[in-house]
């Protein structure tokens, strides 16, 4: 039922198909594509049959690098938002349902993360401790979950007063049962939409850090490719245009996915893009 209505949303279909395509591309890159660090004599060569997207300033194939960079983007786009969704949902449900001290601590935490922009925290952490991908992931998950928790908390507070919760309790259901059997299912759409928007943000932040030169230097990153391209804008447009398109399409796909989910489950407006 739900799946069918989802498939009726063009945005969701287009978005998820693209993300799936990137996933396949990165699997393909891991096994079949060439070495992204392989340098050659043909530096800054335009698109040709041998190098469809041209080569960069070290003679590395741009297409191969984009395919390999997909894995970096996917890791950051998928893992931290999912971790944040799990923690945020658990804490938000507990805080909203029970109230009390947990709720107070949660509110204070959310205030703090609102004051310092996420990108700044990630930038400082990456510059001081080295921009390992896992570190960026940890910072993202740590700064994403409070906003997830806030959404879930607000929803849980309005849900716990509803009659079906009272009915369930009068039938002898425990709090754990009510939370896991009723509330969890009802906040799930909200969390799903929020998580896909966070995936888009995570992609953007990873690329931004790599662009500023504080990313993981051992990995191919679309953001780092754009940083390298900055010096050759006038003579080698392909070094900037193709990685940029890949990055923009990836973020667009994740936002489309979130938009499609929001439309289908009618939670538009409650989750800020």
């Amino acid at each position: 039922m739900r799946l069918r209505s989802l498939l009726g949303s063009h945005r969701f279909v287009v978005g998820s198909l693209f993300v799936l395509g990137v996933l396949l591309a990165s699997v393909f890159a891991a096994f079949a594509a060439g070495d992204p660090f392989q340098t050659s004599e043909t530096i800054l060569a335009g698109p040709s049959r041998a190098h469809p997207f041209g080569t960069d300033e070290l003679g590395r194939d741009v297409l191969t690098r984009i395919l390999n960079g997909a894995a970096t983007t996917l890791k950051v786009a998928i893992a931290p938002p999912l971790v944040a969704a799990a923690i945020g949902t658990a804490v938000g449900l507990a805080g909203g349902y029970f109230g009390g001290l947990l709720d107070d601590i949660l509110l204070k935490l959310m205030e703090f993360t609102l004051v310092v922009p996420r990108f700044l925290i990630a930038l400082v952490a990456a510059a001081f401790f080295g921009g390992h991908l896992w570190l960026v992931g940890v910072v993202l998950a740590a700064t994403f979950w409070p906003s997830t928790a806030r959404l879930v908390r607000a929803e849980a507070i309005s849900l716990r007063e509803r009659e079906f919760v009272e009915a369930s309790r009068s039938l002898g259901a425990s709090s754990l049962w009510i939370i896991s059997r009723h509330l969890l299912l009802l906040v799930a759409p909200l969390v799903a939409v929020n998580t896909s928007f966070q995936a888009g943000q995570a992609t953007l932040i990873e690329a931004g850090l790599a662009f500023l030169g504080v990313g993981d230097r051992n990995l191919v990153s679309w953001g780092a490719m754009l940083a390298d391209a900055q010096s050759y804008l006038g003579i080698a447009w392909w070094t900037s245009v193709f990685p940029g398109i890949a990055l923009a399409l990836m973020i667009l796909a994740l936002n489309l996915l979130g938009d499609g989910l929001a439309d289908t489950w009618n939670v538009r407006g409650r989750v800020r893009l």
């Binding site: 888009g200 754009l226 900037s240 940029g244 990055l247 923009a248 399409l249 667009l252 936002n255």
Partner: peptide
């Protein structure tokens, strides 16, 4: 607006400069 929102600012900046 969705496309504009998805553009990484630094890439958009690069394109405009180029």
């Amino acid at each position: 607006s969705l496309v504009a929102y998805s553009l990484p600012v630094f890439w958009l900046g690069q394109l405009l400069v180029a």
